[in-house]
Amino acid sequence: MIMADSSNGAPGTSVTVATPGRELDEFENPGLPPHRPRLADRDPRAEKRAERQVALLFLISVLGTLLFFAGYFFVPLNETIERLRLQNLMLGLGTAFAMLGIGVGIVHWAKTLMPDHEVTESRHEIRPEKDRRDAEKIVNDILDESGIKRRPLIRNTLLGAALLAPLPAIAIFRDLGPLPGNSLKHTMWDTGVRLTRDPSGTPIRASDVTIGSAFHVIPEGLNEVENKLEEKAKAVVLLMRLDPEELNPSPGRENWGYDGIVAYSKICTHVGCPVALYEQQTHHLLCPCHQSTFDLEQECEVIFGPAARPLPQLPIEVDDEGYLVASSDFQEPVGPSFWERG
């Protein structure tokens, strides 16, 4: 038995449609199952009950709105968190009941009391052939009347103008930001700049830094500079003291530290998070964002994770008053790699 699909009212057959029942050996579509009446369709009492339920739900919504007002007007904020929490709860639950009351009520009404007979509607062709023909003719007429095909001079100059005209719209964005220049290659650190505590900016003596301790360090004067955050984003340093025996400085870097005290850039060479987690027994530094791990005993070589370069070391020494100072700026750009870094 074949299902007579075309009888379903689709006008025209220019579009091939996937129709179960194309081949002979397929089941016939049995059509919509018979409608099964609901409780409310058969029992007037059930109908009445559903009606009352819907009304009750709408009443709950009213109560919800009142709860909102109660929270808004009768729970004054007094700088305590409990008060705010209570107000937030009342506003939220009030809104929730107000909305759910309406929503659930309407849906319950639709489900129990509105007709639930499924209705069939025919699909129409998205683009009937007649429309296509008409449209084609219109487009051709438009093209003809405009004369764009017959006048290549006009067409080509228009094309050229249209291609060029948007360029200013791109160029005008040039002033979004300055050019990088070599700003990424320098930080505030320089010869003699004292290492100070973050955030207070108080200087640090070498004797303050005991074995096992870690200081979060900013250059002296950072808190006073105009573009503080930009400078801080490059200059933050982590200062640690190890047993000098455990450090293995490479040739030329022996005196970058002071008696086991070493300073490394805190900005991850991966994508720039602060590498601030110092494990004082393993001497590993861990970045909390992407877990790059650096080994202090090997001049902060990467031993795990996505970073590819060691953290740059800040050469330090002690000044006459016993304070730690930088011997120079970092010897390489800090933070994530960039094309011009080289």
Partner: peptide, 12 residues
Amino acid sequence: GPQNMPVFSDAN
């Protein structure tokens, strides 16, 4: 500074 926690001495 128990275990791997760094020491935060009073000087720090």
